[in-house]
């Protein structure tokens, strides 16, 4: 649920296609080898199926019940799509939350991503101190989002924060619903820009140097080279960054949870799900309906992502 937990894409997915492979068939295996190979596949697969896929399916099923989280699962009443109707029509925080998730995504994609790419382009050059610059921009990426919330609170606090101290204002950046979403997004961008920069730095390194050489021989300037040659070649990484940004925006949780449990202007779908299923409330069916909506949205993008990064397997 933090930025880091998304699998970074294979940077040079397109650029580094593996050499043609000869089939290495499993059927050659015999006896003990077969047992060992089976175990090597079975144990990790079981872990992923039991701890990730089964719960995902179960959540979808629970969303059609009115279970309150107490007692045995056998007592559950099936109530069809009632939870979904209630989420959409009878739960005021839902639509603002969806809107906040979309704003979150829009800022990350339209602001943080270009900025990260821009830094990557600047730092991709062989200039002095590039290690220092990269380190500084990348440093926030290693911190947890929960901690990010705290670090920024020192700047944002109404009475003790630096920003109000410098501006002479009295704005409660985390508390005022007019500002707090933006304040939280700025803190997220602080982490996200470095992350995007990393991805593009790797991507740029993967661009064939001879391409640029050719372009510069043809008299193209840096900007032309970037937009006409480099950017198109990085298409796979662009799509992957888009997908990651969508998923991170959808899963955004830690930061708003430590700020105010995702209330009062900081409603996000993930926080609403948690508030309904974890809290004293325990509206499991209701919360699961929102979780299923999250799953549905993310699965579209997960599918895109998986298709891109495994394409080469299929080709080979």
């Amino acid at each position: 649920m933090t930025t880091q937990q998304t699998a970074p894409p294979k940077a040079g997915a397109a650029a580094t296609a593996p050499a043609g492979r000869v089939n290495r068939r499993v059927r050659r295996l015999t006896g003990l080898d077969l047992v060992v190979v089976s175990l090597m596949v079975a144990i990790p697969t079981l872990a992923v199926l039991v701890l990730v896929w089964f719960p995902a399916v179960a959540s979808v099923l629970l969303s059609f019940t009115n279970w309150d989280g107490v007692g045995s699962i056998g007592d559950i009443d099936w109530i069809g799509g009632t939870n979904y109707v209630n989420v959409a029509t009878n739960y005021p925080p839902f639509w603002p939350a969806l809107q906040h998730n979309i704003i979150w995504f829009a800022v990350l994609f339209l602001f943080a991503t270009p900025v990260g790419m821009f830094f990557a382009v600047l730092l991709d050059k062989e200039i002095r101190f590039t290690r220092f610059y990269q380190t500084a921009i990348y440093l926030p990426v290693v911190l947890s989002l929960a901690l990010t919330g705290f670090v920024w609170q020192l700047l944002y606090s109404r009475d003790q924060g630096l920003i109000n101290g410098l501006l002479g204002t009295q704005i409660d950046w985390y508390g005022d619903p007019n500002y707090n979403l933006w304040a939280a997004i700025v803190a997220t961008c602080w982490k996200h820009i470095g992350y995007i920069m990393l991805l593009y730095l790797a991507g740029l390194k993967a661009v064939d140097a001879s391409l640029r050489e050719a372009a510069s021989i043809d008299g193209a300037n840096e900007r032309q080279t970037f937009f006409r040659i480099v950017f198109p070649v990085m298409r796979p990484i662009n799509v992957i960054v888009l997908v990651i940004t969508v998923i991170e925006s959808l899963r955004a949780f830690d930061l708003v949870w430590v700020i105010n449990k995702g209330r009062n202007g900081l409603e996000l779908i993930a926080a609403l799900v948690t508030a309904n299923v974890v809290g004293e409330a325990s509206r499991i069916g209701f919360g699961s309906a929102m979780a299923t909506i999250m799953l549905a949205i993310s699965s579209v993008f997960v599918a895109i992502y998986v298709t891109i990064v495994t394409r080469e397997e299929r080709q080979s």
Partner: peptide
Amino acid sequence: AVFLAANLLPPQALLIP
């Protein structure tokens, strides 16, 4: 694909099960 996708699902959606 099954492994990779598992990495991206929202954890809140899996909490109760």
